[in-house]
Simulated scan of single mutants.
Amino acid sequence: MFRRVTTTVATLVAAGLLLTGCGAAQGGGPGAPDATQPLRIIADVTPHAVLLEEAERQGLLGDVKIDVTEISGDIDPNQLVNAGDLDANFFQHVPYLNDWNAKHEGADLVALAPVHVEPLGLYSEKVTLDTVPDGAVIAIPADATNQARALFLIADAGLITLDVKADDPGLDYSQITPETNVTSNPKNISWLKIDRPQLAATLKDPKVTLSIINGNYALEAGLTPATDALKLESAENNPYANVLVVKEALKDDPRVVKVNEALTSPELQKFIEDSFKGSVLPAK
């Protein structure tokens, strides 16, 4: 029932298997999607594809079939879903999705229920929080919403002070930057903005003192966030829970509903707790 597709999306496009803008593509044409076909999902390898596979293994999907393509290379999973090339993606949190929708005219991607939090962590192979030197360099995500998230974590670690609060319901995460919102920086920290997949590699960079790394990339790099991070996010009221994302027209598709129910089920939440030992957290 579960078929993990390891071929890169670029290869699929070249082979003509993704039908951009064509009525044969589920979600991409004017007619109703064919609910008898597998739901095509693009997902990060860890933990997203793992969770989908576990949902199938436990029989939580019923008779719904899924085809999963693992994210690989320089691709935009939101663009693939928005164009109808794939039906859903599973890799992002709501602030990231909101920022993407705002930047793409006509985008109508919607988030379903929160599944899990991959806690953002502050890591270093050189210092502890008590020995951060003056003039430290911290590598942070280059994209706007995760950059804001990184700054809140660094503030929680006591290294800086911000003039905004993470729990402000009206906060526009895409506008939070170290240049405009850091009001106190006693360590004279400077910032190195790096694409998220490359942040784990900065731990070996002699010019970088500490690095902020997303949970999925930390796991893929062999780190154990629950024990290796100097500071780790909590799941409680965390706005960065990862979600299944589809086009507006597909949100009530019975396959989508079933997959979302499986991902948010007590069985899968327990699997997250038992398997990842705090490195991935059920959404709360």
Rank of each mutant, 00 (worst) to 15 (best):
P254S: 05
L19T: 15
V257G: 03
L52H: 05
H48K: 11
V137C: 02
T183F: 02
K270S: 01
D168P: 14
D156N: 06
R149M: 02
E125P: 00
D134L: 11
T128A: 04
A32T: 15
A14H: 13
A32Q: 15
E233H: 04
V5F: 06
G158Y: 03
V182Y: 09
L86H: 14
D63T: 15
L199D: 05
T209Q: 13
R149P: 07
L19Q: 15
L18N: 09
D274Y: 01
T8W: 05
L51C: 06
P169Y: 09
V5Y: 08
S234M: 07
K193N: 06
N260S: 15
A24S: 14
A226S: 14
V245K: 02
D87Q: 11
L17Y: 03
E220R: 06
T227V: 01
G278V: 11
D168Q: 13
N242I: 10
N238A: 11
A35H: 07
A83P: 00
A102N: 12
F271W: 00
L61K: 05
A24N: 10
L171W: 10
L219K: 03
A142V: 03
A113M: 03
E220Q: 11
N260A: 15
N146M: 04
I212N: 01
G170D: 14
A157G: 14
Q198R: 09
V132C: 10
L51Q: 07
A55N: 08
V182G: 13
A226V: 10
L19W: 12
P133S: 03
A283C: 07
F271M: 00
T11A: 05
K165H: 14
L61Y: 03
K207G: 11
A235G: 12
P30E: 13
N89M: 00
P119K: 01
P197F: 08
G29M: 10
V257N: 06
F276R: 00
I272Y: 01
D130W: 12
D252F: 09
E236N: 08
E267D: 13
E70D: 11
A111K: 10
P239N: 05
G27T: 06
L120N: 02
V81G: 09
G135W: 14
L97H: 10
R3W: 01
F152M: 08
A142S: 14
A142R: 08
G28I: 12
E105A: 15
V256G: 05
A200K: 03
R149Q: 05
T20G: 13
Q37L: 13
M1I: 04
L112V: 00
D87N: 06
D143P: 00
Y123G: 05
I213Q: 01
A200M: 08
S234Q: 13
A107H: 11
V137L: 00
P266C: 10
K277Q: 09
T46H: 04
A102Q: 06
Y240M: 10
P30F: 10
L159E: 02
W191K: 03
Y96P: 06
A49C: 01
K258T: 13
W191R: 05
P30M: 12
L17Q: 12
A111C: 11
D67F: 06
V68P: 13
T6Q: 15
P254I: 07
L219G: 04
E105W: 01
D143F: 08
V45D: 15
N242L: 09
V182L: 07
G62Y: 00
I194F: 10
E118I: 03
M1N: 14
H104K: 02
V81T: 03
K193R: 12
G29T: 06
K126A: 12
Q198S: 14
P197R: 00
I66Y: 15
G21T: 11
